[in-house]
Computed example of a mutant assay.
Amino acid sequence: MLRSVLSDFSLGELLRFLEQGRKSGRLLLRPTEQQQTAASSATSEPEWCLFFSNGKIVAATHSSNPKGLQQLIESRGWLRATSLERLLQVRPLTTPLGIYLKEQGILTSEDLQLLFKQQVLTPLPRLFALKEGWFEFSPSSSLPLMEMTGLRASPLSIALTGLRLLEDWTPLLDKLPLATSTLVSAIEGHPPYRLDPQEWQIWEYVNSNLTLEEIAEHLSVAVLEVQKASFRLMVAGLVEEVPKISQEDSTIIEAVPAPIQPPKLLTQQFLQQFLSFLKDS
Rank of each mutant, 00 (worst) to 15 (best):
T149Q: 06
P192A: 01
T161G: 02
L165P: 01
Y193G: 02
M148H: 01
R164D: 10
K175F: 07
P191T: 14
L160D: 08
L178S: 12
P177C: 14
T182Y: 02
L145E: 06
R194H: 15
I187Y: 06
P171C: 10
L163E: 06
M146T: 15
L195M: 08
S154V: 05
L178A: 14
L173F: 15
P155L: 06
M146R: 12
L173K: 14
S154F: 09
M146P: 08
L165V: 05
T161P: 05
S154M: 08
L183C: 01
L160H: 07
W169F: 09
H190Q: 15
P177V: 15
T161I: 10
D168F: 03
T149N: 03
V184S: 12
I187G: 11
M148F: 04
R152Y: 14
G150S: 07
S185W: 00
A159L: 02
D168N: 15
G162I: 05
L166Q: 14
M146D: 10
L178H: 14
L178T: 11
R152W: 12
L183F: 02
T161R: 13
A179P: 05
L163R: 11
L166S: 11
T180G: 13
V184T: 13
D196F: 15
G150C: 04
L145A: 08
I158R: 06
T170R: 13
A186G: 06
I158A: 12
D168K: 12
L183A: 01
L163T: 00
A179T: 14
I158P: 01
T170H: 13
L151M: 14
